[in-house]
Write a protein that binds this DNA or RNA. Structure first.
Lengths: 105, 105
DNA sequence: TAGTTTTACTTTGTTTTTCAAAGTACTTTA
DNA sequence: TAAAGTACTTTGAAAAACAAAGTAAAACTA
């Protein structure tokens, strides 16, 4: 490890994306509206952050019609779950005071 | 709490700022060069992220000369320490799977 | 059944943030 | 005293974030 933040994943460096992943880790899927409400985000915000995670292959999208209305369902991919867990491990390591951050005694 | 990310502090939403605060939580101070090396960041990057934290009154800066060379020392303020600890609490709460993120049984 | 509102998103363009290269002001070394 | 190094700061381009506006179909309303 070259530096103390090298294992922190840039893709999860934003609270909305962190929130999306957290939701998708405990639920096998969540739809657009659910994410929007849980995160208190605007439509455009949910759209762009989910798109960013999709681009990285961390989540996938399934579009269908439920009750004749369009429904967009987001699901964390295996890659995404793995990446997120590694991110959490990196966070824990960084934030744990007993981890060599002290520069002098 | 209106939504699951409302207690996550936007000011710490970036890995470099997270790293700076982590370092300043365990060390009573750190200078420019130390932060730069620990974080593996560029000069401009350290400058702008410390400035952002300074603007929020989360860290303060002390400038002096050591061995006739300019030295910039960063110190976490009481406000900053408090804000960071609250941020960590919010993160833990969000990331703990047993915290009401499940939308259905 | 024509018009209005709502739902479920997507697109757009502005604003904000991030970033590293270049700049500054010294000090040190040759 | 010229060149190189140190310790930052400034700058401006590039990328990201954001919410307002747009779209399209459904549902309600008169």
């Amino acid at each position: 490890m070259k530096n103390i933040i090298s294992n922190i994943n840039k893709a999860f460096d934003h609270r909305i994306r962190l929130g999306i992943m957290s939701v998708l880790m405990v639920n096998d899927h969540a739809d657009f509206k659910t994410l929007k409400e849980l995160l208190g985000a605007t439509d455009g915000n949910v759209a762009s952050h989910t798109k960013a995670l999709e681009k990285q292959n961390y989540i996938k999208v399934e579009k269908s019609f439920i009750d004749r209305k369009p429904n967009t369902k987001y699901i964390a991919t295996t890659t995404g779950r793995k990446a997120f867990q590694e991110h959490l491990a990196a966070l824990e390591k960084l934030l744990n005071p007993e981890n060599g951050l002290k520069t002098k005694s």
